[in-house]
Design a protein around this nucleic acid. Structure first.
Lengths: 217, 217
DNA sequence: GGTTACAGTGAACGACTGTACACTGAACAG
DNA sequence: CTGTTCAGTGTACAGTCGTTCACTGTAACC
């Protein structure tokens, strides 16, 4: 009566016997993946331990072999999505020579990363404002993101003389434009990407136009 | 054994006998109010019909006398919160003579309305990104908000020549700054208000500084 | 080769969920 | 005064929830 399946026969590619801890890590990842799937159209707080376990092909109690609670899985999800976010920031960090080059390159990077990791960005933007501990964890990460951006901005000649407070103000503003753009991309119907990225570039260009006239405090 | 209480004796102020439909409207409002209370630290989707009913002093089944489902209550909540939002927009619509005057007045209005209606703004910002039908309804409302702002902006001399597309781009940018400011206010610890509104004014000032140099398309 | 560690199973629990149904009593219309 | 309307009650049911506990089989260890 057992409908259990020998996992080793499932994937014809990996014939080598997988170690036990490797298998454990795989099911852990399966739990994270199905959770992310289920989160496509609902907030994290509505996920039940049971449906995540079922989605990963597990009996409910087996869940506890990997996470002590759903909240702990949520934290792991934040870490995973955050890794993607940091990857994006690393990709965006270039030393372009012109404003326009910097703008279009940054927007293109955001566009590319959002489209390649929709689940992660949807999760981050959803839960950022959802309240609870996840929102706080994501807020901390975004502040780091913004702080790093401020440091990068400080290297640009027109911003050399700016106070650190004003640099943070500018960085936050840019980040908020990027978040807005991300949400727009995630809610967009197919074919609207070009328009969204175009508007995003405009917004950044307008902001940067104000820089030369700014009197820092 | 009945612990029912004659409602008319509860409030010593309103002695006059209230009509039936008036009473119905009161309990309906009680349902909305307790829902808003419970939403202080969790997303709407986690609210149960039973706890909202209990919070309003009702037996679960009585809930259906007022709303066909929790989702319908959510829609009513969006309408209520949206009314506050429109009130804010109406208050902010002045014809100031200077940029700086317009900026500080607008930020002050946002500050005042957010502090006076924290529940409504928390609900709106939380559910805006929470997915589901509520998020869509709120998104529609915010687009209207942004559209109205674009029309207002069109009256300013420096923006007379701008294309409507660019005006919408600018309006969206300003709205996104206002939303960011609202979230910051709602997450602020006591005493941080001045700093937050100050930063908000800076962000708007920076944006407006770019306007004269903008070449509209 | 015998023993241990441990990922996953399956049954059971008490609490909570939305909803159906028959009801009560007071405000209302005639 | 009489009959109707209807906001609110109480009971009940079928699901789902998180969590417990004793268990099984196999990879890993000595």
């Amino acid at each position: 009566m057992s409908n259990a399946v020998d996992i080793r026969t499932l994937d014809p590619v990996s014939e080598e016997p997988v170690s036990r801890q490797e298998r454990k890590q795989r099911t852990r990842q399966a739990l994270l993946d199905t959770a992310l799937d289920l989160l496509a159209d609902r907030p994290f707080a509505t996920l039940s331990l049971r449906e995540v376990a079922k989605g990963a092909g597990l009996v409910p109690t087996a869940f506890y072999r990997h996470f002590a609670s759903m909240e702990e899985l949520g934290v792991a999800l934040v870490e995973e999505a955050t890794r993607t976010l940091r990857g994006m920031m690393r990709s965006a960090r270039t030393d372009p020579d012109t404003y326009q080059g910097m703008i279009s390159a940054s927007v293109a990077t955001v566009h590319q990363f959002v489209r390649a990791n929709e689940d992660h960005f949807r999760f981050l933007t959803r839960e950022r404002y959802g309240g609870g501990p996840l929102a706080r964890a994501i807020a901390v990460e975004l502040r780091m993101f913004s702080g790093d951006l401020a440091i990068d901005l400080a290297r640009f000649a027109p911003l050399r003389a700016w106070s650190t407070e004003d640099l943070h103000m500018l960085a936050d503003l840019i980040v908020s434009v990027m978040i807005t753009t991300t949400v727009e991309l995630l809610e967009a119907k197919p074919g609207e990407d070009a328009k969204i990225t175009g508007t995003a570039e405009k917004r950044l260009r307008l902001i940067l136009l104000g820089i030369p006239r700014w009197k820092t405090s």
